[in-house]
Structure formats: structure tokens, C-alpha cells
């Protein structure tokens, strides 16, 4: 049976059915378009895109582990959608950054060493139980929502276009994390306890997200100053936690310098797994 026969068989069904299942690829910005259309970014801009891309890449790598392991099948699909969105953002940012150094998204993902990765510590934190993953999602998705909202107005048109697409998706991720935080916070005593635990172990990595670098100052209106996001972020997350019967934990902040390539002990394992096959076959196409 070839595809034409398959189509013919399927077309023999009624219009009502077809209308409910009509599918289209959509017409949003894709990573492939950036490689073709993108103007080459300068070094600072590329470094900035690299940071955003690395955050998204490591987060996607973490999230993708949930597929086939979620608490309910519907949630396998939901987390899969989120992981796919985030991987898409990573690919766009990395593709753009790579144009500055004549490297592809894959060169950057598979052939850099751990100390060359610029991701935040929060995204490399282990998945833990579902509560830890939801808490990490809440922290990062509110952050990315605020970041991309502002970045959509960047003076750099490519970054603005990537952010404009990403912000709509991240808005949904924020909603997903918010819904679950409320259910787990107010559900059972056990779920509330697990959420309090998750907040305590993840909160130390919040500070790093808002640290400004000289790079941000130099980029001016082409980038978003991380510290400028903090007030809104704290207001939003406090609101969600309060609505869920939870509180901002009273814990110290970790010394985290992922932006300069100083990572925790987790990233080494994440990269070992992610890069192993590509590195076994240098120069190969897939």
C-alpha cells in the first residue's frame, strides 16, 4: 500500500470526519528559516543567543525524559508538547548564534565541552518527582515568559522574531505549571508536602537567573537586562504560590555561575548522554 492508496482509502470517509481531523503544518518561524534568512549576528549578540539557546536545550533534554514516564498518559502528551516547544526555541537560538562562528545548531549542541555551555543551573536540576519538575517549570516558564515578552521588542529583528513565536508557547507552559501547582499545592497533604520540598531544593537557583553581565549592558536595546525581570517574576510566582496555599521558601541562594561555564555536577552527565552518539561518529551526517 503506498501513500496514494492510503490517502484514497482515508478520503473515502465523510466530510464531517475530515473537518474534525484536518491538519496543517502552520506557518510559524522555524529554525531552518533562521539559517537561511538570518543576518549574521555580531559576537555579543551571538553570545547572548547562545545563553538563551543553552537554557532551552538543557531544559528540553531534561523534560524529554518524562515522555513514557508521566503520572497519566494525557500528561505524557502535555509534557511532550512542552519539551518540543522548548527544543524548538533552543534550535532557533543556537542556529542564530552559530551564524557568527560558521557553526550549525548541531556543532554547538554536540561538539562543545561542558565549560563552554552557558546554561543556568536551574535548567540542569534533576527532574525529581513530578512536583519537582512542575516547580522547575513554574520558575523557568514565568521567567521565560517575561523575558521573551520583552525580547519580542528587541532592536535585533531575528531575536525579536524568535521571541515573538516563543512567548506564545511559553505562555502555555506557564499556564500548565500554574494549573498543576494549584492542584498539587491544594490537593492532598502529601502533594503539598512534596511541593514545599520541591520549592526548597530549587529556590537556591533563582538568584542566578537575574544576574546581569557586561554583555547585556553592551547589547543595550537588543537584549533584555535579566535584573529588570525580577520584580515582575517575584510578583507573579508569589501570586501562583499563594493561590496554591504555598509560600516562597526561606532558603539561601546558591553560588551559581553557569553563564561563565561553571556548572553543577549534573551537566556532565546530561552532555555525556546527549553527545555520545554524535561524538562516536565525527563528521557523520544523520
Amino acid at each position: 500500500m503506498n501513500h496514494d492508496e492510503l490517502d484514497a482509502t482515508l478520503d473515502s470517509f465523510g466530510d464531517a470526519l475530515a473537518s474534525a481531523t484536518r491538519v496543517t503544518p502552520g506557518n510559524a518561524l522555524r529554525p531552518e528559516d533562521i539559517a537561511v534568512d538570518g543576518v549574521v549576528p555580531d559576537e555579543d549578540l551571538a553570545q547572548y543567543a547562545l545563553r538563551l539557546g543553552d537554557d532551552a536545550l538543557i531544559l528540553a533534554q531534561r523534560l524529554s525524559h518524562w515522555i513514557s514516564r508521566a503520572p497519566e498518559l494525557e500528561e505524557d502528551v502535555a509534557l511532550g508538547n512542552i519539551a518540543l516547544d522548548v527544543l524548538g526555541h533552543a534550535r532557533s537560538f543556537l542556529t542564530y548564534a552559530g551564524l557568527a562562528w560558521d557553526k550549525t545548531e548541531d556543532d554547538l549542541a554536540y561538539w562543545r565541552e561542558e565549560e563552554e555551555f552557558t546554561s543556568l543551573h536551574i535548567v540542569e536540576q534533576p527532574n525529581g518527582d513530578f512536583g519537582v519538575t512542575i516547580t522547575r517549570q513554574l520558575i523557568i516558564s514565568i521567567y521565560q515568559y517575561l523575558l521573551y515578552s520583552k525580547l519580542a521588542a528587541s532592536a535585533d529583528p531575528t531575536l525579536a522574531a524568535i521571541a515573538a513565536k516563543a512567548v506564545k508557547e511559553v505562555d502555555y507552559h506557564r499556564d500548565h505549571a500554574t494549573q498543576w501547582t494549584r492542584r498539587l499545592g491544594l490537593g492532598t497533604e502529601e502533594s503539598a508536602q512534596r511541593m514545599r520540598h520541591a520549592l526548597e531544593i530549587l529556590w537556591p537557583y533563582v538568584d542566578e537567573m537575574f544576574q546581569d553581565e557586561a554583555l547585556h549592558e553592551r547589547l543595550g536595546d537588543r537584549a533584555v537586562l535579566p535584573s529588570s525581570l525580577r520584580e515582575d517574576w517575584e510578583q507573579q510566582i508569589t501570586q501562583v504560590l499563594t493561590d496554591a496555599g504555598l509560600e516562597v521558601p526561606q532558603v539561601g541562594m546558591a553560588m551559581a555561575r553557569g553563564r561563565s561555564g561553571e556548572h553543577s555536577e549534573h551537566l556532565g552527565y546530561i552532555l555525556a548522554e546527549m553527545q555520545v552518539l554524535a561524538r562516536k561518529h565525527p563528521g557523520a551526517s544523520w
Binding site: 503520572p71 497519566e72 513530578f130 492542584r183 490537593g187 502529601e190 502533594s191
Partner: peptide, 16 residues
């Protein structure tokens, strides 16, 4: 394992 590990989540959502 996925079912076992997810039990508390399903319970929490049902309780909510």
C-alpha cells in the same frame, strides 16, 4: 513504575 510514581499526582488532582 510510571503508574506507581504517578499515584500521588492523580490522587492530588482528584482531591482538588
Amino acid at each position: 513504575e510510571a503508574h506507581r510514581e504517578g499515584a500521588w499526582v492523580r490522587e492530588a488532582a482528584a482531591a482538588y
